[in-house]
Structure formats: C-alpha cells, structure tokens
Design a protein around this nucleic acid. Sequence first.
DNA 1: CTGTATCCCATGTGATACTG
DNA 2: CAGTATCACATGGGATACAG
Lengths: 124, 124
Amino acid sequence: MNLENKHKEIHTHQECKTFILPVRDVLELIGGKWRLPIIIALSFQNHRFKELERQIVGITPRMLSKELKDLEVNGLVNRTVFDTMPVSVEYSLTDYGKSLDKVIETIRDWGVKHRTKIITDETR
Amino acid sequence: MNLENKHKEIHTHQECKTFILPVRDVLELIGGKWRLPIIIALSFQNHRFKELERQIVGITPRMLSKELKDLEVNGLVNRTVFDTMPVSVEYSLTDYGKSLDKVIETIRDWGVKHRTKIITDETR
DNA sequence: CTGTATCCCATGTGATACTG
DNA sequence: CAGTATCACATGGGATACAG
C-alpha cells in the first residue's frame, strides 16, 4: 500500500502519529553524525575498535564507544570479545543490521538525484 | 547496483565519504522533530499556516515558520499567498516533495518490522 | 588495545510575548 | 491570520585526560 492510500485512512492525530512513529524510529537508529559511517564501515568488513577509529576519520573514542553500544543494543551490531592478550574486540553487522542496506540504498538513490538537482539549479 | 557491490568500489576515505553524503543530505532534509509531521500533513492535503499549527500537535509558530521556510528553500514545499483580507497563505507539497513519499514509505516499512521485532523481543 | 570520565560548547527546540 | 523576537534550556557532540 502506498502513501496516498495510507492517507485515506488517517483522520485523527493519533492515527497520524502512529503512522509517523516507525519512520522516526529508523531515523533515530541511523541518524546522528556517526551511525551511518559506522554501519557502512562494518558492512564493508568487520573491524576492531581501533580499526574503526582509523577508518572513520574524525570520530573520538568516546563517540565511537557510545554509538557502537547503541547500535549493539538495537541489534544492528555484534560485539565479539577475543580472549587474547591484550583483549581484542571485533565488531560486525548482524543480519538485521545488514537488512538496513536496502533502506539506505533507497535513501541514497533519492539523495543522489537530489544532489544532481541542486547542482543543476545552482548553475542555471 | 546494491550496497554490497558498491562496497567493492570503496577503498578510500574520500570515496566512502562521497558514498555517504547523499544519504546525509536526505536525513538532514527530513530529520529533526517536525519535518516529517509537516510533510505528512501536507501530503494529506494542502494547509494554511494556522491549520498546520492545529494539525501538528505541539508545534509552536516559531518552529512551524522556520521548518516551512527550510522546506520551501529546499524545494519540497510551495508557499502561495492569497490577496485576501487579511492575507491567507497556503502551503502545499511540490511534485519534488511528493517524490519523497516512496522513500518515506520504504523507511516506514523497515520501521514497522523493527517495531514488531522489538515488541516480540521484549515480551519473549 | 578498548574503552571511560570530565568538562565544554554549539545547535535545536520550547515558552512567551509581540507585530503587520 | 501569519508570522517574528527574545530568552531559556536540553541534548549532541568535541577535547582531553585517564583506566583496566
């Protein structure tokens, strides 16, 4: 069912809120400055903490730690501790996390067209 | 081309950044607390300023004004002034704004499944 | 190496009052 | 009606130092 048909069902504020809530969830899940870079980096390949810190230019250990924890809590990322000396920790995307790929790709498709449009508009 | 194939092309930080940028654009465009509610309200039907204020429970005129201006600048919303007394102003989605519907719908589909998953996980 | 603690600042948003 | 001005506050995120 597309958006237009959805609209025909929405008449109260409560229904409208219910409609928007799942979208907000996703936006919060992949929003913020560092979530997307982390997800993309991990979808490329698994990484250890320090590797991620190097891959994602500009991120501080504080933010990396915080965001990884959030992503893990939300089931998008796996954290695996290896009993080496000193300990090493590997982060990877869960299957669930990987399932976001098609969503991100859809967003990106529109975004690419949007960039093209903006450049066209500006140079005209 | 899907994400996995994209990844095979991404080897430098610059390329990765370029990959993410269009996604960030979209997230900024529809992110924030009020953009989505406004877009949804307008995709339902055109509205005047005061009508929007009533539709979108909790928004202040300050935020409504600011967000509408941003959406207009980005070409998602049309602002039409009618020369009545006093003036009335109608806001509507542009075709471009409407083209976001399928993106939002894709995000929402994943979000709905996500909600289901969370509830299932919690009650188990 | 894998993080955590602390402090600081910018930005987004809210409250309230006001204008054309 | 359609907004704007001003002030206030919470949150996100950065810098730096430190801990296990």
